[in-house]
Design a protein around this nucleic acid. Structure first.
Lengths: 222, 222
DNA sequence: TCCATTTGTGTATTTTGTACACATATATTT
DNA sequence: AAATATATGTGTACAAAATACACAAATGGA
């Protein structure tokens, strides 16, 4: 039986999660500090080995919860990393998942848990990470910029709706560009639904609350 | 050591290749007939288990050559398939690769080889395939239509350059649409380079031979 | 009550995409 | 050899989309 051939053995599957947030116009990513060898003491992306009886995405959601305390409904796969030397222990194929959430809505394990502690890092202040995680993070950042044009990925950021200034702020932070407010609204309005509620975002005047229209997607970048 | 935990064991990696071609305006995909259990006698996409000492893409290129005789330089990953019941034997994660070539430029193992024989199938005449390969093929077709707007994937189809009518024919076949010749040229000319050669494509008048401009990419669909 | 900040709206210009018709070259037929 | 059918190659007018741009209204804080 071919599967007994040693050439097919001992391939492990790693899931690696890049979870982004935007805080006051600054894009950040969630890192955890490793408390075990290898790379003990290094920061890394939340990651771990997948079980052989779970879906890869479920493994990613489980690892994220175990390593950071964050419980999500969904993550998006963005790339597989398969260089032969990824892990010093055995052949490990890494499957990268990404997501974006509002850090204000979750509580992370921070300087409290023995097996890991987690924190948000600005993208221009990323330390040297364990394994090939700097490389993986760079790929994730590029993919995030590509995917942000698809509003699907932003639904996890705004589970309770959003105001247009809020939404624009996330776009501008992720893409690192400025967008004219009037043109932004013109482009977004056909994709979203007015909930006829209003909330205060940055004090001052109240802003209308919108939600995404499930049936519609944006298709072009600003 | 966590990797000895049985939860991490016995995960195999399969590579599955969907190789497309266009013949006289008809898009086709390469299938092989299985000569071993499971699914002995069924048609399937070329596929096989990855070795633990090779890159996934190299595994895909190797399997394609072993199963069909076709030797390529490159394939593009398009999706990972990980349902728990993909294989009756053990947990098998399938990694799908796609490519598109001119079938006239390759010779396939056809009714000659004991371990497999291969043939090109029209997309509306696909038989029931082994494993989840019908599902994988459907995903590949959708991805091909998305990716064809990136001329990179077409470089494998036209390694020696192309005429504009030829190129348009491939676009029209893959996307299953008709494109106005004048508008097609207007859009393509900035992305390609005139080689100042001319060849006969469909007899009659000679057509100019172009090649892709490496630095440029198309970004919108017709 | 004044000021600074934030939300909200419309129009003119530029760019891009789409629709559309005829001339030239050449292999094939008569 | 001439006529015909088929394929390649080109420009322009119109429509749609993206971009640039300025002011009014609401409200918290000084």
């Amino acid at each position: 039986m071919e599967l007994k051939n040693p050439l097919y053995k001992n391939i492990g599957i790693h899931v690696i999660i890049t979870l982004f947030t935007v805080e006051k116009g600054i894009t950040k990513v969630l890192l955890v500090r490793r408390t075990n060898e290898p790379f003990k003491g290094s920061w890394s992306l939340p990651s771990g080995a997948m079980y052989n009886n779970e879906l890869i995405k479920d493994g990613a959601l489980r690892e994220l919860k175990e390593k950071t305390g964050i419980e999500l409904e969904d993550l998006t796969p963005f790339r597989t990393f398969d260089s032969l030397d990824r892990s010093p222990v055995q052949r490990m194929i890494g499957i990268g998942y990404m997501g974006i959430i509002d850090s204000k809505r979750v509580e992370i394990l921070k300087n409290t848990n023995k097996t890991s502690n987690a924190d948000w890092f600005k993208l221009d202040e990323i330390p040297e990470l364990a394994y090939d995680h700097n490389d993986i993070l760079n790929h994730a950042i590029l993919k995030l910029k590509e995917r942000i044009i698809d509003t699907d990925i932003l639904k996890t950021f705004f589970p309770n709706g959003f105001t247009l200034p809020e939404l624009q702020n996330v776009y501008e932070s992720i893409l690192d560009i400025e967008i004219d407010r009037r043109n932004f609204r013109k482009k977004m309005l056909p994709l979203i639904i007015d909930t006829h509620k209003e909330i205060n975002y940055l004090g001052k005047k109240k802003a209308k609350l919108y939600k995404f229209d499930k049936r519609k997607k944006d298709t072009s970048i600003f």
